[in-house]
Write a protein that binds this DNA or RNA. Sequence first.
DNA 1: ACCTGAACACCGTTCAAGT
DNA 2: ACCTGAACACCGTTCAAGT
Lengths: 239, 239
Amino acid sequence: MTAASPARKRGARAETPITAESIVDTAFRMIDERGHEAFSMRAVATELGVFPATLYWHVGDRAHLLGLVEQRWVNGIETPEASDDWRTWMLELARRYRAHARRHPNVARLVSVERSRNVESLAIPDAIIGTLSTLGLGDDIVHAYNALMGAVRGFVVLELSMASDPPPPSEVDDVEHDMRGIDPDRFPNISQHFHLFADRALSIWWSEESGDSLDDSFEYLLSLLLDGIAARMPKRRRP
Amino acid sequence: MTAASPARKRGARAETPITAESIVDTAFRMIDERGHEAFSMRAVATELGVFPATLYWHVGDRAHLLGLVEQRWVNGIETPEASDDWRTWMLELARRYRAHARRHPNVARLVSVERSRNVESLAIPDAIIGTLSTLGLGDDIVHAYNALMGAVRGFVVLELSMASDPPPPSEVDDVEHDMRGIDPDRFPNISQHFHLFADRALSIWWSEESGDSLDDSFEYLLSLLLDGIAARMPKRRRP
DNA sequence: ACCTGAACACCGTTCAAGT
DNA sequence: ACCTGAACACCGTTCAAGT
């Protein structure tokens, strides 16, 4: 039986008509549930019961489809309602961003490495710039923006790249063993502070369950960033 | 003529013997010079004049080869000599890291997204922990480490993902046009501050030449991070 | 120990041809 | 306008067989 080929006549329409939306839907779900390795144009087509070429008619090529998946992903992030305190607003946005990324780690990771220029996903940048523009930073506003954006998104990407590329369960003990057995002569400092860093730090990490262990580090990073920006605001400003 | 298949007898040795090192060498160079799309197991094999299976004997599979490429890449970063001022040391390391990444953007980007658990590439983490451990941060040392690591590496990854996935020259004008023509009603803040952000900010970027435009933002980020850590050090410490 | 040669099960993408 | 069916030029990986 040819499960891949839909039992339909040449050129005939599908029972359930294929739309760009249904394709993005399916792609998102496949990546989300089964990881980036499960995603391919052919696999999406098979899942929808059509031939690969059909996708190209509706959404263009693979890169374009991933752009649409990215859009859907960022649209899932709700910008916090305006607040009179810029810090709580920024803090809340950063937390929501990270929470959303951790809710869909496979999607978040794939879209953050494959594409980055998408006019449709500028809602969050715009909101951040809006908030920063009230602080009187002058031309430094662009640096504050880049620093926040790069640090927060970057932190989350790195975190995800560890969490969603876990060693196969069969090897997790080997990795842990390697880590615990690192040469104290080559890596004296890691060895000495191993109890603090073990499975709790970027690059020094192996299990999958320790997912919340970077929560405090993320908060620490945010306080560094926001304190620093606050310190660079002009002392007194007129409304 | 079959340029792909080496003119050699079944089972015969290659003239120039293939080593793991020569394979990593070739893979690094191909990614570096021609981008990640030019890299494949088969392409590396062809370049070396051997059959694909040969690579598997020497370096294992694709993921393992990329791990070796990553090692070679990080080994290219020289840790600064010990300094009595932790800030200048940390600053110098961060600058070298970014400079090295920008020297080999294609490699840096590929290895930072594909693998992240490599016992061989812990030299830099170890050095950072060594420096941080002199500051008296207590258990916060792990958060300082994660914040620095995540922010700095993350910033650079995002920066590279814009620089090394440039729109094809044929489309660069379209992208710029799209950016300049964004709807002021949807994105009022970007529109208002467009002159500051145009081609100088993450997600608001199109050309390839504007590569140095994030230099100042990177320095700004570093000062936020280092100032913040300094402020969290105990006021007076005994030697 | 090291490499060939072939095979397997996939990819993304294009295109003429059908309805 | 929308989809099939087939084709093209690729992948990563495995494995028996050679030297």
